[in-house]
């Protein structure tokens, strides 16, 4: 093998992203006829997710797939997916923005700032939903007064404020006990994360599916690793990725649906928000958007462009 690409992932080997990336690594190795060796490190054994962008920028790591939410502190535009504008949007509308000119523009900005190479379209983790211990939340009104663990980020906190709920920050490791002991009433996460941590053992009983944020991963390489590859291999890396994205997305979606079923078999009762309720909530959330954009320093042009794409 002439070239070695090391990929670092934060999630466990059995996580859908790891399974997919391991497959990508294999396909890529085979297609390169032995010119490439691709190694995948799991479970943050090399880098935690939030540290991946910097490791790529410093050239310490060859390739990573950090979540969009991991880049918000580096490039304000990556807070976009958390904005009210995107609240509860169906997949097709999300793809129209992130696969289109706006996603490409964000990738360009990221490449310029970090000196990395974004190698293609983003793949999905899935929608974040709200899970609860005691409260069978059936509408957004039921959220008032609840204490919910949230991943950090101003957009998440602002959304909780609009719900009348309180965002509580705590490490993932503290979550099971915090749920058991009532330190928090619930949390925002994906069905798949609840399944993998078996959070029903910690007392989760209800979920309110309102598809409130869509989590995606951005595939990228460090400039050093990218520049070292001859043009033919660069093309292979990009083409192999692009050829797999559509199938990845379908499988990620199915993984969430399967997780949802496992969760309900384990007693998590699901209530789905109606499209009308989601629309109403979005217009209410939109009142805060202007302030959020200013606070986060997001380029208003990108927001306006996104709005145009979404309204089409």
């Amino acid at each position: 093998q002439e070239h070695r690409i090391e990929i670092s992932l934060e999630t466990a080997p059995s996580h859908i992203r790891n399974i997919m990336v391991s497959e990508y690594a294999e396909v890529l190795e085979d297609a390169s006829n032995g010119a490439l060796e691709v190694v995948v490190y799991h479970a943050a054994s090399k880098y935690a997710g939030s540290k991946v962008p910097i490791a790529l920028a410093q050239g310490a790591l060859d390739m990573g797939l950090p979540g969009t939410w991991h880049m918000g502190s580096i490039l304000p535009e990556f807070n976009l997916p958390g904005l009210p504008l995107f609240y509860g949007r169906p997949r097709e509308e999300q793809y129209a923005v992130w696969d289109g000119e706006i996603g490409q523009d964000m990738a360009r900005r990221l490449e310029e700032k970090l000196g990395v190479k974004v190698i293609g379209r983003w793949i999905d983790l899935g929608y974040g939903q709200m899970f609860f211990v005691d409260d069978a939340v059936a509408s957004h009104a039921d959220l008032a007064g609840l204490k919910l663990r949230a991943p950090g980020g101003a957009a998440n906190i602002a959304r909780y404020e609009s719900f009348g709920a309180t965002a509580i920050a705590m490490g993932w490791g503290d979550v099971p006990q915090a749920l058991q002991r009532g330190t928090v009433d619930g949390l925002l996460t994906t069905h798949e994360a609840v399944r993998s941590a078996k959070l029903w053992d910690s007392g989760l009983k209800h979920v309110f599916d309102d598809n409130q944020t869509f989590f995606q991963y951005v595939p990228m390489m460090s400039k050093q690793a990218w520049d070292e590859l001859p043009e033919a291999l660069q093309e292979l890396v990009v083409d192999t990725w692009d050829a797999s994205v559509d199938e990845y997305r379908i499988r990620a979606k199915n993984a969430q649906i399967e997780a949802r079923d496992v969760n309900s078999q384990n007693g998590i009762n699901r209530i789905e928000a109606s499209p009308v309720a989601i629309e109403d909530m979005r217009s209410k959330l939109m009142e805060k958007q202007q302030a959020l954009i200013a606070d986060l320093g997001i380029d208003p042009v990108v927001v306006a462009d996104s709005q145009r794409v979404l309204e089409k």
Partner: peptide, 13 residues
């Protein structure tokens, strides 16, 4: 210097 030149800020408010 690298972190300062990128202007990385913490994710909190």
């Amino acid at each position: 210097q690298f972190a300062a030149s990128l202007g990385i800020n913490s994710a909190s408010s």
